[in-house]
Write a protein that binds this DNA or RNA. Structure first.
Lengths: 339, 339
DNA sequence: CTGAAAGCGCTTACAG
DNA sequence: CTGAAAGCGCTTACAG
């Protein structure tokens, strides 16, 4: 626990016999530094093991070099992937990435309110699956914090997400083509103010697909799974308790799909003969049960968001970006014609 | 993009007609502040929407109020849980949590080297499943950065982890009691310098259990699964290709176990009749395939580590803590007597 | 209990 | 291309 004073820019300046200003410029790679000077400085810094104090740098520069990623479900698979993608590009670019769990509406309001005060303390914000109120969107937009939302999208804010409507249609069309007519839907949590949009859009896709096929949507077949494994299990149990259960189920996340599948198996159904199930995400474990699903790549989404932020920051711009994530139907062995 | 100057401590001081020093004390809850003064200050701060600039606070205080969690596999389930646990207690305590991906030995060396320079920039460090060299351990210990390792443990460094040896024995004993005599082991990656210890200890437990039961360890039954789903799949494929395959398999992570289980099913084996499998972790998806496993709680581990750090920081202490995580055998339906 | 002042370690105009 | 100096927004002895 030796309280060794950290080596400061001053130490480097002395060692290299230049001013601290020059050290600062040289080490940050600014171009108005003589080649020989830069070398001298870099050598001295390396010998002393100098690392700039980020707090001091942030304070002086008025830019924080940190971007925060706020997630509604910090330990969930999707969020973890996004964080991973963000962190990879940010650390590369010399930014810090700070995670913040924002669970529930009050936490969100509080978070947004403090974010607005984060001018010069946070350079960027990526919000994963967080549902904002219109006034919050406006407030965020009026800030110079580069914000990008993942999962949802709001007017005036950058976003990356799939076209959930057509993605869901892709899943349901697959089932339809197989010959299914009674198709259950396990949606997210329509009453969860945090995460409605994704759920809403995928349900829209489900309904569009059925309608186009001339099938009327049966409300009995729609159940909420809260984006959780247990929710998926409960929903499937309810579906199977119907007097006329569906022959196939589309769950809008793999975790719900896997929960649902498990319950069906437990109740003695054969999959896919007695029950087809398709999920959404292509969770890495999905393949271990041969789950048919819609693949998306949250790591790439996170990286995408981070890259925009870094770019905009570098160019001192504040552009509005939107990216539609690619999505793909992966047919495995939980889907087959009804029998 | 209005460039509104943030409200500073100065603004609050003026509004409350006190000095900035008093504002600083009042808002941080120091006790040498008159009750009425504190109220006045708090009111002014609230009205102005004041939030202290962390960079300035860190610089002035010489303490960073940030702790970093370094993880070898940032997007993996285990790490995500730990990060979640850490973040929850830290945000509560007013600390920032910063994640850092440290994949591979060079990244680790670099990370540790820079961590040593992080004196006063980082208050605490939690390292998840990162294997350190002895000199790195020494260096870290000589620092006043509160460090706790999760998964591994080193002399002089705080750690939280299960007793992996007896935990593994628990799993294997279960199989033994069921009557299995040929039990395969899917271990981690013995040659991965990042994550050997966990793997090594669980293998030790496996060997102890067999030896105590009077069974000699058959090297053909030991395969490496790299802690990944694919690795688990490959390992099971190799096991099944044996002229005399095992009747049961213990995989030291659920992700490997689920991969292994999937391959067995695909090759037409019935589970558990033809093949028992037990995992390790109790991954939330494990129950969807009724996987028998050893349960541990990484969220709690992360919270535990964070709590120590916060406490030590608060008391200006630097204690050595160790916590043995509870572990529990969860018997589901992937294990049965051999037939 | 409160204030004036120094200082934390950088960056950035401003000169030269 | 380089340096001297101001300043970023706080905290913390030191007085009182």
């Amino acid at each position: 626990m030796a309280d060794i004073r950290s080596v400061t820019i001053e130490d480097v300046a002395v060692a290299a016999s230049v001013s601290v200003a020059t050290v600062s410029r040289a080490l940050r790679g600014l171009d108005n530094v003589a080649h020989s000077t830069r070398q001298k400085v870099e050598l001295a810094a390396a010998e002393l093991g100098y690392v700039a104090n980020p707090a001091a740098a942030k304070l002086a520069a008025g830019s924080s070099k940190t971007i925060v990623v706020a997630v509604s479900n910090i330990a969930g698979w999707f969020s973890a992937q996004v964080v991973g993608g963000v962190e990879a590009v940010l650390s590369e670019a010399g930014y810090d990435t700070q995670v913040m769990g924002v669970a529930g509406p009050e936490a969100r309001r509080h978070f947004v309110a403090s974010a607005l005060q984060m001018h010069r303390r946070v350079d960027g914000l990526v919000m994963v699956d967080i549902r904002l109120e219109p006034d919050e969107v406006d407030a965020l937009r009026d800030t110079d914090i580069r914000t990008v939302t993942i999962g949802n999208s709001y007017p005036g804010l950058s976003s990356v997400r799939p076209d959930d409507i057509s993605a869901a249609r892709l899943a349901v069309d697959h089932l339809l083509q197989l010959g299914h007519r009674r198709i259950g839907l396990i949606e997210g949590m329509p009453d969860d103010p945090m995460r409605t949009e994704v759920s809403w859009r995928r349900r829209e896709g489900y309904e569009q697909a059925l309608t186009r096929a001339g099938i009327v949507v049966d409300p009995d077949l729609l159940h909420t799974g809260n984006f959780s494994i247990e929710g998926g299990q409960d929903a499937m149990a309810r579906l199977l308790a119907l007097s006329k259960p569906p022959t196939a189920v589309f769950a809008i996340s793999d975790e719900m799909a896997m929960g649902a599948r498990g319950v069906a198996v437990e109740q003695g159904l054969r999959i896919p003969e007695d029950m087809s199930v398709v999920g959404f995400d292509d969770h890495p474990l999905a393949q271990t049960v041969a789950l048919t699903t819609i693949r998306q790549d949250p790591t790439a989404s996170g990286a995408h968001a981070a890259r925009w932020i870094v770019e905009d920051l570098r160019n001192d711009a504040c552009n509005l970006h939107t990216h539609e994530v690619d999505v793909e139907l992966v047919v495995r062995r939980t889907t087959a014609p009804p029998c």
